[in-house]
Structures are given as structure tokens and as C-alpha cells.
Amino acid sequence: MIALAPAPAAAIDDAIDDAVSRIRGRADALGAAFAELGGAIERASAGGKRFRPALVAASFQAFGGTPADAPGLYPVAAAFELLHTAFVVHDDVIDHDTMRRGIPNVSGEFRQRARSRGADASGAALLGDAAAILAGDLLLHEAVRLVALADVDARQREALLALVDDAVFVSAAGELADVENAVSAEYADSAALLTAAHDKTAVYSFTAPLSAGAVLAGASRESIAALADAGRHLGLAFQLADDLIGAFGTPAQAGRDAGGDLREAKRTPLIGFARESEDWSRVHEAISVAHTGPIAVREAQRVLDESGARARLVALVDDALTDARLAASDPSLPSGAEQLVTKIASAIARRIP
């Protein structure tokens, strides 16, 4: 999402690699199973877009920061990538997923380990989930450790730790609400679904990394608050665009078969809006059979579109992006920060299917 010059991108990768190598080194000394967990963490941390640490660096530069004068920049940026990886690993446990990007994830690897040692299906699932939970815990610990030990002044450290604290708490609240909405007999209203969508992504993916870069650059409290407001709107727009991709995106956009969210009958804000339409009975019927194949998925997409839910969600994304640009026009923000927000907003708009 954010294009960086080669040097900062390489510096971010190096900081992430250093942190993961530390985990791997500590794990190697604590037994064969734990050493294998260290390897699984290393694989889980590899690749990806790494746009959260990119946001930290881009925000820092937008406020006129000079990397050579801020030795804590890249470790702090790396912390947000480890935080993301931790959430992904834990999400896979919550969703009972054993694969990611076409290969076994941490849980999948340890299920295989358990089966190779004669465990039954229940035992394999127990070990797999335990390993993934512990891997996520270690990544969360390392993320906080990176910020706690970063070469920054005391005021910056306090502000950065507060950002991480908020990111963890709000994201956890959003994830819990999302799961509760999914299992409850009654559908949550669209307002509750929108809150969950915001909380599980916006703070840790946008508000906190953007604010962290501003903190590291020595920005004023007024500037950081204005940027955080823009980040909040960007984060909501990003998640809602993701929901649209999950329902209407191409396989290339979604990274899986088209209409995956419809096949899984996910209760997203899109479905919340459909429930408020006169076509809800038709939508509900179509979604209830979407898991049967691509023809049923296309029918669910058609009915959802006709209900007006898709148009309402697209309009909400547009409104959130407009609000983000408005927040970024605050006079306390330098032009570079406003340009950064505008660039991100444009990138999110291009994702809407």
C-alpha cells in the first residue's frame, strides 16, 4: 500500500529479521519442540506486505524526521509488524484455520508434528492450537519488548507504549465482538457490526502506526491527534473495503475463491445493511446456500447488490475516506502528512470491487 524507497524498506526488513532471529535463538536453547516453534514463528513472519511498519516510517518522514537521527525508528516499526503477525496467528486459532498462503500455518505445522508422534485427531488439534497460541504470545511479547527497549527518549517511550496498549486492547475487543456476533442466534445491528469492523483493524493497522511515526519525529500533540483521527477513518474504510472484497472481489483480490465471505455466511456490515432492506428474506435465503458452489455465490452476490446493501457500504467507504482527507487538512499537520493520508485514501479507494 505504501511505497518506500529501497533503503527504508530494507532497514525495516532487517529490524523484523533481527527480532525474529532473537526469538528463534532463544527457542533453540529450550528443547526440540520449542525450537520447532521458533522456526514456525519465523515462517509465519516471513513475507507479507508489511505496510504497518511502512506506515510508521512514512509518517515519520512526513513530519520531517531524519532516520539517521532516530535509531529507534526501525525497531518500533518492526514492532507493529510483529503485532500484526501475532494477531494473524491467534486469528487462525479462533477461525480453526490450519493453512495460510497455501501452506500449513503454525497450528497446521504442529498438528503434523503431533500426528507424526502418534497423536489422534483430538490430540493433534490440541497441540496445534497450543503452539499457535504460544507463538502469538511470544510475538506480542517481542513487539512490546522492541518498543520498551527502543532508543527513544522517556516521553516518546511512554507515548509509544500507550499506542501499543490501545492497539492491543481495542483489537482484542473487536475480535471478541466479531466472534460473538458470528455465533449469536440473533443478528447484531449494523452499528454493532461497524464498531467491530473498526475495532479489530483500524487502531493497530492505521491509527497506531501513523501516530507512532509522528511521535518519533517529535510532532506536537495536536498534530498527532489530527493524524490519529485521519487514521481512524482510513482504518474503517480499509476494513469495509475488505468486506466488499470478501463478498464481491475477484480471486486475485481476495486471495481465495470469489465470494468467500458469502460461502462462510460471515456477518459483516454488508449483511447488516442487507438486513435493513426490504429484500432481506431473499438475501438470507441466497446466503444460506452460497456454500454449495460458485453458481449459488453469484446468485447471493446478485441479490445482495439488488438489496442496495453493496451501494450503502461503498458510500460508507467513500464517506470515511472523505472524513480522513478532511482530518488531514488540519492546519496543525505538515503538508507531507496530508499528502500521505491522501495517498493512502486513494489506495484504499482503488481496492473497492
Rank of each mutant, 00 (worst) to 15 (best):
R115A: 09
S116V: 12
A119D: 05
D120T: 02
D120N: 14
A121S: 09
A125C: 10
D129S: 14
D129E: 10
D129I: 06
A132T: 07
A132C: 11
I133D: 01
L134T: 06
L134V: 13
A135Y: 04
A135E: 03
A135W: 08
L139S: 04
E142W: 00
E142D: 01
A143K: 01
A143S: 14
V144I: 06
R145F: 08
L146Q: 00
L146F: 06
V147F: 04
V147R: 05
L149Y: 10
A150Q: 07
D151V: 14
D151G: 06
D151T: 10
D151A: 15
D153S: 09
A154Y: 13
A154I: 09
A154Q: 09
R155Y: 12
Q156M: 14
L160Q: 03
L160R: 07
D165M: 08
A167R: 05
V168L: 15
F169D: 02
V179R: 04
E180A: 12
E180F: 15
N181K: 13
A182F: 02
V183C: 11
A185K: 04
E186W: 05
E186D: 06
A188E: 04
A192S: 07
A192L: 12
L193N: 05
L194H: 09
T195K: 09
A196T: 06
A197T: 15
A197I: 08
D199W: 00
D199N: 07
K200H: 02
K200G: 05
K200T: 00
A202W: 03
P209V: 03
S211H: 00
S211W: 12
A212M: 10
A212F: 04
A214P: 08
